[in-house]
């Protein structure tokens, strides 16, 4: 076990119209892990992230980022929403979208300047999208859009990264490029939490995993808990997957 706890969730319950989507979740995510959240559709994976980021108000429970409420720790956290959650026809460029990542540290009213622009360009370079910096975002392919979103998170220079299905609708090359960047982040001591769908790649990509289906089924190192027993508990059916260790 690693010692420092990056994210701590206690007794978290979230409900939409009185129907619980997350029920009494306790979760401790140690610093420096690359963690997948897996579970069937409607298991509350995105909701868990949104609740941690205070985008959704829980009806019970508390959340701490390095021991303090999220509102005090915003600058330590970067967030990549689902690609489908925004309108890609919005009149703006790839560079401008990445610049949005700097808005949090700027605070209200202050405008981004040269320093922010330089950081955004560096982030674009890291995800291999520098040559597309002035491209209108609707002119980008799905994989390129996802890279732009990743660059926007990188520019936040956070300690914890939350990503909601970053591999959805991207080709294999982009998937590898993204996972390599995420692994680099982990190497640099960052904590990365990813909502993930492809169970086959969990052992290969991640070192930590949380099984979720409204309630928390299990959480811990992939090597110890990524097994048929937990998969069956989470998905309700005997879920055979190839685990290459």
């Amino acid at each position: 076990m690693k010692d420092k706890i990056a994210i701590q969730v206690d007794d978290l319950t979230v409900a939409y119209n009185y129907k619980p989507v997350l029920w009494d979740i306790d979760l401790r995510v140690p610093e420096g892990v690359l963690m997948a959240i897996v579970g069937p559709n409607g298991a509350g994976k995105s909701t868990l992230i949104k609740a941690i980021l205070a985008i959704i108000k829980p009806i019970a429970g508390s959340i701490a980022i390095y021991g303090k409420p999220y509102e005090e720790q915003r600058k330590m956290v970067a967030y990549v929403p689902q690609k489908g959650s925004v309108d890609w026809d919005f009149p703006t460029t790839a560079l401008d979208v990445v610049m949005m990542g700097t808005y949090g540290s700027l605070g209200w009213i202050k405008r981004p300047g040269q320093k922010e622009k330089k950081a955004a360009l560096e982030a674009l370079e890291k995800v291999g999208m520098l040559s597309f910096k002035n491209r209108q975002i609707s002119q980008l392919s799905g994989g390129q859009q996802q890279r732009v979103f990743l660059a926007r998170a990188l520019v936040q220079e956070a300690s914890i990264y939350f990503m909601d299905e970053p591999f959805q609708g991207v080709d294999a090359t982009t998937e590898i490029a993204i996972i390599n960047i995420l692994k680099e982040l982990r190497k640099a001591g960052k904590t990365v939490v990813v909502v993930h769908h492809d169970l086959q790649t969990v052992p290969e990509y991640f070192d930590w995993v949380t099984f979720l289906n409204v309630k928390k089924i299990a959480t811990g190192p992939v090597k110890e808990i990524f097994n048929d027993d937990n998969l069956t508990k989470t998905y309700g059916i005997n879920y055979k997957v190839a685990i290459n260790q």
Partner: peptide
């Protein structure tokens, strides 16, 4: 003039905007 950046990010991506504290 004052809130151009806030208007932009909250219009484009409300989720991120909220997470950033805007």
């Amino acid at each position: 003039f004052l809130f151009f950046k806030e208007l932009k990010v909250s219009t484009f991506d409300a989720g991120l905007s909220s997470a950033l504290g805007i």
